[in-house]
Every structure is written in structure tokens, then in C-alpha cells.
Amino acid sequence: MLLILEQLMNGLQLGVMLFLMSAGLTLVFGIMQVINLAHGSFYMVGAYTAATVTQLTGSFLLGLLAALPAAAAVGMLVEAVVLRRLYSRDHLDQVLATFGLILFFNELTRMIWGRQPLFMDVPDWLSGTVELFPGAPYPSYRLAVIGMGILVAVFLYLLFTRTRLGMQIRAGASNREMIAALGVNIRFLYTLVFGLGAMLAGLAGVMAGPILAVEAGMGEEILILTFVVIVIGGIGSIRGALIAALLVGMVDTLGRVFLPGLFRLFLPVAEADGIGASLASMSVYILMAAILVWRPRGLFPAQI
């Protein structure tokens, strides 16, 4: 029972990471109709900047503060230099160009920081564990990640429902010609949205830095799951991204933990482990396929 509770926390934490990544991506996808494979690169930029600044100054918070504008700046630069030329083009051209960007950014980090992964540790005040339930210590840092995710979700909710900017972004998503005709600088709005998305990815990268290896190519590992999340959630919907991220986090975590055990009930151990492990790594995609059969446009498709 304790184990299940702990695993639910783990699922929640993975879901939160995925939400940080997918919130930005789904905005870009939904509002600008641009497929951006290089979203994982902003995640990497965030992690590398935070690791470097944390190493130089010894302060995780300074690392975090440096990484957010760095990721946003790189994002806006990419939008202005590359993506702006691709809005009117085919999705295939966008995939090709942004895939090229992935290679470019991975090689660039190798040139700047070398091939060796960077070191980044949990700040002292977040190291250690907390006994949420007696007998099941949980790493405090992971709790902080969950807290950060909730903060971001609240921030995005307020931004979209309570501010003028949020209203314009929503309007831009439903009809971009109309909002441009009404005198909103849609081009600037796009750059801003892109920067926001990149910043959220950078934040995810910073939060991942102390848990994961900070290395070139780290963005692609999470990128695939991020795409699964936005497809399940409905492209362009932040609410969908949140629900889908939590769903994917839970299914992935619980599948990994409990599927091999489940198969052991009626198969020999060696086979059960093999099948269980393979099926667990597929579980998220099976979920996606099932949801797409039921709701072809995702759980919460953005209204158009």
C-alpha cells in the first residue's frame, strides 16, 4: 500500500516535468501551427546554463534565474531567425528545419562544454528526504519539482484567463487573420509565446538537472513523451496538456512497476520480466492509441 502511494507520487512528479515541457510546445503548436522538434534543445539550454552558473556561483537559485532568460532568449532568437520563415510552409519543411536545429544545438553544446556530461547537484536546502507517509522517505527535491509544477500551472491559468496578453494569445489561436486585422501585432505576439514556451522548457531542464545527467542530447529523451502528451491532451490546449501529462506520468510509472509483477502471476519469471518490461515501455503509446480511437483530436481539443 505504502509502495503504491510512493509510486503515485513518482508518477505525479514525472507528470509535472512533462507538463512543463508540453505547456510550451502545445502553445506553439496550437497557436502558430508550427511543429517544433527543437523544443528539447531549450530544455538542454536551461539545464546547461543552470549547471554552469550553479558551478560558478555555488547557488542553485542563481542558476535557475540565469537559465530562464537564457532559454527564453535562445527560443526567441530561433523564432526570429528560423521559424518565422516557416510559418507559411508545409509541416514537413518545419520538421526538417527544426530537426536540423536539434543536431545544431547538440553539436554546439559539445563544442562549448565538451563531450563530458556536466555535474549539477541538488542544493543543500533541498537534499535529504521527507517522510510523507511513515516508512516511505521521499526525496525533498522531487517534492520541490511537484510544487514548481503546480505554481506554473496556476501562473499559466491566471495568465490566460485574467490578463490582456492571455486574451490576445487565445484570440490568436482561434483566428490569426482576425486578430491581426484588429491591430494586434501578431508577429510580436508569436515571438513572445515562443519565448514563453522556451522558458518553460528551460525551467523543466533546470529542475531535471540535479536528477538527470546534464549532457548533449538530453532533450530528445523527454521530447518524444512530450509529443505524446500534447497529442493526448489535444493540440493547443494547456488544460489538456496538464491532464495528459499527469496521465502519461502515472501510466508510465505504474506500468514500469506493476506490469512485470502482473505477468508473473501466470508466466514463468524470466518471461514475465521480459514481456512486462517491454510492455511497460509501450504502455504510454498504447494509451495514446486508445485515446485517439476514442477521441481523435485528443482529450481537450482547442476550440477553433
Binding site: 505504502l2 509502495l3 510512493e6 509510486q7 531535471a208 529523451e221 514500469r256 518490461a277
Partner: peptide, 21 residues
């Protein structure tokens, strides 16, 4: 226990909880 994880997996929280148990 003998656990095979996905190649390239980055988060081991679930495996670690099972391991502790």
C-alpha cells in the same frame, strides 16, 4: 529482484521505490 529497464531511461524513481521495498 531482477529488473530490466528501458534503454535510455532517465528517471528511476519508480524502480528505486520498488528496490527499497
Amino acid at each position: 529482484g531482477e529488473v530490466y529497464t528501458k534503454l535510455g531511461q532517465s528517471d528511476y524513481a519508480a524502480e528505486l521505490a520498488t528496490l527499497r521495498a
